[in-house]
């Protein structure tokens, strides 16, 4: 594996007394799709939220360990968090549009990055909505409130909004959980396309989806990383007993 873009070292995360991530070590390769697998409640979302320091928003959080992004430890107190977050777009598990129109949702990230002119924004908004496979459905209702979209449309809107910030890495937390099989497949293909320009870290519950798109797999169980490695090895020759059980569907 070439130089990983993110490497996580001895990461521990506590919510109050609850030990949510236990001594986690992960290396995430650049321009690949890394899929995080594991049963519900094992800490996948918490891991993503630690990577872009969204856990800072929660009370009573304790973190130890290191998360290196381009050789910079982003858990240090003195890093500019907004810069880190712009590099790592996070798509949350529950889509959460901003309280504004569809257009302004996508334009938001560009505006806070200094692109203000409507004339410049319009083609970019369109480009990102096309990337997220939403353009055709919303092109005639750009000024509608985003909250009126269906959940699946909101999920894709959030993808477009995330891409508009121009991140290097996309952290996607079950980005297709509210989509029908056809739209899921389209979004999956889109992620595979996107890995040319971005590094993708994706959480999913759907094993088949992981098989289709993953280059690299991280398998977690109860806050620990049980096994990680290239996808074909992981699926063909799992080393750990727990992985074998999981692949047989034991925890689902």
């Amino acid at each position: 594996m070439n130089q990983p873009i993110i490497s996580i070292k001895n990461l521990n995360l506590y919510f109050g007394k609850q030990h949510v991530l236990k001594n986690v070590n992960i290396e995430i390769p650049q321009n690949k799709v890394t899929v995080i697998l594991g049963p519900s409640g094992c800490g996948k979302t918490s891991l993503l939220k630690t990577m872009n320091r969204l856990v800072d928003l929660h009370e009573n959080v304790k973190i130890s360990g290191q998360v290196f992004l381009d050789n910079e430890d982003i858990l240090k107190d003195n890093v500019d968090i907004t810069r880190i977050r712009k590099k790592m777009g996070l798509l949350s598990q529950k889509p959460s549009p901003l309280p504004m129109t569809i257009f302004n949702n996508v334009a938001y990230g560009m505006r806070i990055n200094g692109i203000k002119r409507k004339r410049k924004l319009r083609p970019l908004v369109q480009k990102h909505l096309i990337e997220a496979n939403l353009w055709d459905e919303v092109k005639d209702r750009m000024n509608d409130p985003a909250s009126r979209l269906s959940i699946g449309q909101q999920q894709r809107l959030c993808l477009a909004r995330g891409l508009a910030v121009n991140p290097e890495i996309i952290l996607a937390d079950e980005p297709t959980s509210a989509l029908d099989p056809l739209s899921s497949t389209i979004i999956e293909k889109q992620f595979v396309e996107l890995k040319r320009d971005y590094t993708i870290v994706l959480v999913t519950h759907v094993l088949r989806q992981a098989r289709r798109i993953a280059d690299y797999i991280v398998f977690m169980y109860l806050g620990e990383v049980i096994e990680q490695g290239p996808a074909n090895e992981f699926f063909e020759n799992p080393r750990e007993e727990k992985t074998k059980a999981y692949l047989k569907g034991a925890f689902n």
Binding site: L54, R83, G89, S96, I112
Partner: peptide, 10 residues
């Protein structure tokens, strides 16, 4: 979740 999505955009 709304705060999170706003912050996660940087």
């Amino acid at each position: 979740t709304l705060l999170e999505s706003a912050f996660s955009l940087g």
